[in-house]
Amino acid sequence: MKKVIQGFVISSILAVSSLSAFAASPIVGYWKSMDDRTGEPLSIVQIEQEKNGTYSGTIVYRYANQGGHTLTTCAKCPEPYKDKPLVGLKILTGFTELAKKPGYYVNGKVVDAKSGGVYKGKANVSKNGKRLNMRGYVGVSLLGRSNVWVRHDSANP
């Protein structure tokens, strides 16, 4: 009887710990954004869940490009982003996870610091949780650009 109780306790602990591992949404964490044309790393973005249940992303690190220059402000962006420092800038807002499709996020807004554009956005996390397929578009999703972000361990490069 003692072994049965011990087995139950251990099974319960494992079940609760595995549930807590999946409690956070798969999009939450640090992501390295990559230039879809050159393959260069651009930024490390931290995605968090807001109090209202939506997801947002803030640049926490900016890489220098191949020429050694680092874009530091959102010079081409419209207000309220215009001339704001990129590190600390919230470039993703309003993403909501689809209830029937975990790992898929819609209704977001994406700021492209390089072009200054503000786009509608959607995203989905790969099954292994290591890639984020980000799409920014105007009007309909067909009129847009996608790029892949890679999961990163921390805010440090």
Rank of each mutant, 00 (worst) to 15 (best):
M1D: 12
K2S: 13
I5P: 06
I5M: 04
Q6M: 12
G7P: 09
G7I: 01
F8T: 13
I13Y: 03
I13S: 00
A15Q: 00
A15I: 10
A15N: 01
S17L: 14
S18R: 05
S18H: 08
S18G: 08
S18M: 11
L19H: 06
F22E: 04
A24F: 05
S25I: 08
I27D: 02
I27E: 00
V28N: 03
G29Y: 09
W31V: 00
K32D: 06
K32T: 13
K32L: 06
M34H: 10
M34R: 11
D35P: 09
T38F: 13
G39K: 10
E40R: 05
P41H: 01
L42N: 14
L42M: 13
L42F: 08
I44W: 10
V45M: 01
I47S: 00
I47Q: 00
Q49M: 08
Q49G: 06
E50I: 05
G53P: 07
G53T: 08
Y55F: 13
I59R: 01
V60A: 03
V60K: 07
Y61Q: 02
R62T: 07
Y63P: 12
Q66G: 13
Q66C: 12
G67W: 11
G67N: 14
G68S: 02
L71H: 12
T72H: 08
T72F: 09
C74M: 06
C77H: 03
P78F: 07
P78E: 07
Y81H: 08
Y81D: 06
Y81N: 05
K82L: 10
D83A: 03
D83H: 08
P85L: 02
V87R: 02
G88A: 01
G88F: 09
K90Y: 14
K90H: 10
G94L: 03
G94T: 08
E97L: 02
E97W: 05
L98T: 09
G103Q: 04
Y104C: 02
V106D: 04
V106K: 09
V106S: 03
N107Q: 14
G108H: 06
K109L: 12
V110F: 15
V111G: 00
G116T: 12
G116C: 06
G117R: 07
V118C: 02
V118Q: 00
Y119K: 01
G121R: 01
G121C: 11
N124I: 06
V125D: 04
S126Q: 08
G129I: 11
K130T: 13
K130P: 08
K130N: 09
R131E: 15
N133F: 15
N133Q: 14
N133D: 15
R135K: 15
G136I: 10
V138L: 08
G139S: 14
S141M: 12
L142F: 15
L143D: 03
R145F: 15
R145M: 14
N147K: 09
V148Y: 10
H152L: 03
H152S: 04
H152M: 00
H152Y: 10
D153M: 02
P157Q: 00
